[in-house]
Design a protein around this nucleic acid. Sequence first.
DNA 1: CGGCTGACGACCT
DNA 2: GAGGTCGCCAGCC
Length: 116
Amino acid sequence: MPYDPARHGPHRIVGPGFHGKVQALVKQVPAGRVTTYGDVAEALGSRNVARQVGFAMAAIDDDGVPWWRVVAAGGRLAARSVRAQVRALRAEGVVVKARRVQEFASRRFTFGSSRP
DNA sequence: CGGCTGACGACCT
DNA sequence: GAGGTCGCCAGCC
C-alpha cells in the first residue's frame, strides 16, 4: 500500500538546522544502547524523515556524536562503515550478529514522545 | 528557483 | 531471504 497521509499522519516539516537537531538527539543515546533512524525522526516530529536522519549522520563532523548507536529498523545495521559500527558497538557490550543487533528490543533507546 | 542525491521504512514480488 | 518500488525531505550545487 502506497503512502497514505490519513494513516501515516500529518507531515510536519522539521525546519532549519535539521542536522543539528538530529545530532543533539543522538548525543542523548547512552553507551550500550541503540536507537533507530525512525525513532530519531519521530522524536523530531515527523516519522517521514528517517531517511534525512541518515543523511544527517553522513554529514556529521562532530566527533562527539555517537553515530554508531543509530541503526535501521529492526536493529539492522545500515551505516556506510558497518565494519566500524560493529566494532564500536561491541566495544560497548552490544552483541551484533549478521548485521543485526541482538536483543534489539531491550537495547533500544527511545526518546520521550512528548513534543509540542 | 530547479534538479540531484541519499547511513530509511514499509510493502511487494 | 533477496531485490525492487515508492513515498517522505534537507542540503547542496
